[in-house]
Nucleic acid binder design. Sequence first.
RNA 1: GCCCGGGUGGCGGAACUGGUAGACGCGCUGGACUCAAAAUCCAGUGGUAGCAAUACUGUAUCGGUUCGAUUCCGAUCCCGGGCACCA
Length: 966
Amino acid sequence: MDYNFREIESKWQRAWKQTEAYRVSNDSGRPKYYVLDMFPYPSGSGLHVGHPLGYIASDIFARYKRLKGFEVLHPMGFDAFGLPAEQYALETGQHPAITTAENIRTFKAQLDRIGFSFDWSREVNTSDPSFYHWTQWIFLQLFDCWFNTASGKAERIQALCKIFEAEGNRNQPCPSGPGLSFGAKEWKQCSEKRRQEILMGYRLAYCGLGEVNWCEALGTVLANDEVINGLSERGGYPVVRKKLRQWYLRITAYADRLLEGLRSVNFSQAMKEMQTNWIGRSEGAEIRFPLRVTGGGPDREGLSLLVYTTRPDTIFGVDFMVIAPEHELASRLAAPGHEVSVKQYLDYVASRNERERMAEKAITGIDTGSVAINPFNGREVPVWISEYVLAGYGTGAIMGVPCGDERDHRFATHFGIPITNIIGSFYDGSKANPTNSAILEQSGFLDGMVMSAAVEVVIRELEKRGFGCRKVNYKMRDAAFSRQRYWGEPFPIVWEDGIARPLKESELPLKLPHVDQYRPGPEGEGPLANLESWTRLHLETNTMPGYAGSSWYFLRFMDPHDSKAFCSRKASDYWGQVDLYIGGTEHAVGHLLYSRMWTKFLFDLGYIGHDEPYRTLVNQGMIQGVSELAYRVIPGKYPLGDLIPPASGGDGEAPSHLPNPENVPVYFSADWLPEGKQDGFQLIHLPINMVANHVLDIPAHAAANPDACYITRSGYFSQGVWHSPEGGLPEFRTVPQVEKMSKSKYNVVNPDDIVDKYGADTFRLYEMFLGPIELSKPWDTQGIEGVHRFLKKLWRLCYSESGELPTKNGSPPPEALKILHKTIRKVGEDTEKLSFNTAVSQFMICVNELTAMSCRDPEVISSLLILLAPYAPHISEELWHALGNQGTILTAAYPDWEEKLLKEEHFLYPVAINGKTRTEMSFPADAEPGMIEKEVLAHPVVLKWLGEKKPKKVIIVPRRMVNVVL
RNA sequence: GCCCGGGUGGCGGAACUGGUAGACGCGCUGGACUCAAAAUCCAGUGGUAGCAAUACUGUAUCGGUUCGAUUCCGAUCCCGGGCACCA
């Protein structure tokens, strides 16, 4: 009886489906465990072997935890709104709803074949009205809240109105407009419209004017994390900065808590680092420098310049000031004689786009001719304008300290500004030294102080004398939350006379209307602006970005059919945090930050009881493709005759009837390329299904390229005919290359093909066996045989060649128990550590040993099957039943099965010599000192340690230690 | 440039808290079965020397701590990832 995986796998998949084996209950009373995958965007190209890597890992862990007696939530859903579906709709005219539904069907079918234990009754789809109903609802809560910096959490806007009525905004400065200031009386006198404008500046979801990333090709704005090096993440189109009216999420309000929260979660160091960098918190001070502008008119008097610095201790080293070209004072500071040059410079900067600025970081700038006055010593320094100062960070102006800052130093040197040295020998005159441990010189009241200590002194002095104040700054900006697109959640907002009115809860969900065409609307608006039925109601025409739904979907899984709430408090209290979250690194600063913010927000309002969504995050690596490349003659580069190698055994003459490479492709085998002539070739990708062991199947390839000619070490192939002096078929060798899987490189491996050929269990085991999940590694189809062999071996352990099952025949041999118990222990530990590759290795060792000692004890094998079930569920279940066990492994296994089995464990004893631990050795638990002595003394390492000495005795001391006493 | 990771056979990768380095798998070599192939099974497989037992050597490089270092410390080189005028 053969291992017929196709039959077994479909049989059990059907059975699990019918019995709803993986249905999860919210009130089982058992301890919970929540295992989640980052849900996929259902793209049109389906899964490749890299996708399931994380899903397999999470499935193994979920199944393992279930066996351990936990109620395990392990759901799957689809992040179905987003740009690609709409781009596709623009190209083909197919409605995104239709293509998305199709893609989801394909994905589910592919996923189901791999035998995942998802509870599909909890499937969510972010584009479904029953889901985005609650996305819109949460948005309304964000809209209805502000961040109280005093309490450090979100509160209702109502409470803010009360504060305004009582005392104006003097204790609650406006985060959107720092200059805004009003008293209680003024607030009461404000018109409704003005009040709404003011409140908008406080809301956590707000509409405001700001510099946004505008992508012309995609016709929409993008969030900062969706722009990479000035190009859009999707599609790689150019992105420009533009001032537009947009919806934003006030994520900056949560900056400190997002940082703080990182301490309590179990993310990789790299992930925490990335988020920390993105948030970019820095502590320093704002300092106000009075300005003196010559030839001033009335608008030029009493001006001052506010700068932000993290190094207030260097205040006496300020040799110049620089403001960003976009700074409001930039055009007003030109002193007589400088007007033209300043104007020219500002025009020059305006003509350069983001990309150009980033590409060449030339030192540019212009002197305004005006001066700033150092408030501490009255020293006058020139004020410059330069593009190296960013308008969007801090105050858009800096104080230049060339001896301590590299950029300032370059700037000063370039423009010949004299440099003041305040750090003595720490500054060598050629390069800035950013040290903070120097002793300050030429620094007035700071002289003789260590820089790091001077920081506090200066800040206190600044505040005392009113020159400035302590200030914390962040790199992170508020997140652009609206898209000029169709395929997203509509905003539940109506515009009345420029006032944004939220819809009532009873009016949700605001359904996305059907459209037939997806052209952008007028004036940079989205397609919804083309719909008369929509604009008539003055509904917001933007839609929400792709990350809206994914910011909270993990909560919906807990209570997916609730029609009264996004998730009941009871459900979220039970499931709590996601215990294990698996997904790629690409969401480090997007999805992960947004979802963490939404969680904190919902926590503030008391809708959920935890304020970090994920307890442990694991980033799975990529599975790369192995491309197969061939050398192809670049037409016109060489006369072909020059390139024809003498076929071995031939006379070295060029075959006379070879085709002309000007017209047809000529390929060279990698092992027969004239030395030093590779530059006459280009490497092209070959379809990997026509290559085996880096040898091209020429007839197959030629079938698609009938004119092509293939030249190898021992002959060539042209026009469907072999020319081989040796006879037989010459080998055409390819060049393997590891790179990202992509259609255009013909190196995509489809999991369906692998499952067809080897079965889901083999596929699952092999993906795990490849290496640690966090690691990126190339897919190697050859290696899969070894894992498949293991399952066949296991099968044969149960079914003999004649198809007979083993029968119980006395108690199993101690050696068999020893390896079984070692496997139980090792696999348990490895699974807990998510070290699935070493666990698979241990299974192989176990089966190898059992086979070698021909132990076919049904109990031993059944125990092994329980252990294997999370990894290879189908074969485990099948053999479990064949061996006469009842129920599914899932229902039959009991939480303490491991402990019961481990009663007979062969413990690893630490071996010590004269009390000093040396190594660990394995002995049966009931081992007698006598038998231990024999084994210990036979161990080569112990022999080496002992040398010539004879031990006095070998004793077992407490804590299961073996001690050799000399 | 800055900040994180990481360098182990032909390859993917093991090695718990310092304790027989190279588990497990692939590949390769030889053998058994077979008319033959496939499948399966057995043996070998870091390097050098040797018929062999064995010896020496070996975890990027150099140095240190230790009875003992892939593991800890210092310096250098290389690779991967992230950030990149954030004052």
